[in-house]
Design a binder for these strands. Structure first.
Lengths: 204, 204
DNA sequence: TGACATGGCGAACGTTCGTTCGCCATGATA
DNA sequence: TATCATGGCGAACGAACGTTCGCCATGTCA
């Protein structure tokens, strides 16, 4: 049962974890959050354990995946891997998380928020192949010329984004594919994120 | 001054770190290495600090990059990034390490040992572009059809490897480039590693 | 208004921590 | 052979650890 206070505390705790790669002791946590007593820290941690963010380990509490997602660090950090997107859901939703990959989100520019498994070879000439994991920065807006993850009526697609007034062209980078033409006055188009990089696992 | 014993101990310590994401206490370390006394652990750690593998932190010893390279884990692990290869040196040498990237080596298949910055577009049609970081598994042997990192007389190159008897063809995946033909009876060719995957940071 | 859950506080517990010290067996070196 | 560095051992130190307990102010809800 996390309250207003607790969520601010959680944010600080995650920042601490990002910097120190370990959870603080109860005394440290008290100093961090302004508690005067270790037992206040203890109870706070108990609440986090109850909500599944931490778990009890041999020597004190340990982070769970739920906690680690949300830790922003140049050191570790877990990126959700999204394979298939359930119809009618935004891409970045627990439901769509197929797995996690431990990759530094700052390897990518802009910072990656999730990895999307690419299907098909429509972006082949941009060096994006079937099975690649596309690093995506989650944002609802895109600029002319960017590669985007877009949703057109429940369909998720990766294309190059070109806009002229209310007309958007989603261009494949492969002559075998026709550009998709969207008139924003008639059709709905939502940008789920922009290209931030690529991760290609394994053997060609 | 690491001795025979110490290097076996170091291996175990790295394995512990891979599993626990933290260094053991002196008591745990003693149990791990068969020491009967904490002070033996302490002295062992002191030796590692003296050789630069660990450093002294607020609450006990902390790992340095030198230690982390060599930790094999599905969790963290540091891969050396190799940009330019100094003439006459093997690729995987401290001298050539330009930087490090925290990426799970097991994301790649086979396991990646280092990242090599790709120059040129000779492998463009294999989806390998200029500036990409090629994940490389270090091995001196390659099979027909694999993409390899090869050295031909002080030149490092990434190509597809084809062998017929003593004749090796190193084929670019770009019609603008001619295959390189190497007769092993006349010319020296050494395989520095095989392709294991790709990391492409940032904006296209 | 009364009961109760919440989220603080302070004191205390036994355990484990890192660190220091002195001692000793071994093997290499002078 | 004598010397000395190495890498073990065991005991001890104070400090920090996680955890438990009882108490109290506040706000909520019946």
């Amino acid at each position: 049962m996390a309250t207003n206070n607790d969520s601010r505390h959680l944010e600080r705790l995650r920042r601490f974890y990002a910097e120190n790669e370990t959870l603080p002791s109860y005394a440290e946590l008290g100093r961090l959050l302004g508690f005067g007593s270790k037992s206040s820290s203890f109870k706070f941690i108990e609440r986090l354990i109850a909500s599944g963010l931490l778990k009890r380990g041999a020597r004190g509490p340990k982070p769970t995946e739920h906690f680690l997602v949300g830790v922003e660090s140049d050191q570790l950090s877990l990126l959700p891997l999204i394979g298939r997107v359930a119809a009618g859901t935004p891409v970045m939703t627990d439901r769509n998380y197929e797995d996690y990959r431990r990759v530094d989100p700052r390897l990518f520019r802009p910072r990656a928020d999730y990895l999307l498994k690419v299907r098909g070879d429509s972006m082949r000439d941009a060096g994006i192949l079937d099975g690649d994991l596309l690093a995506v920065h989650s944002t609802p807006t895109a600029h002319h010329g960017q590669i985007v993850v877009a949703r057109i009526e429940d369909e998720i697609t990766v294309k190059r984004f070109e806009q002229r007034g209310s007309i958007v062209l989603l261009k494949a980078e492969n002559p075998a594919y026709q550009p998709i033409r969207v008139d924003l006055r008639e059709q709905e188009l939502s940008i789920e994120g922009v290209y931030a990089g690529l991760l290609r696992p394994g053997t060609p």
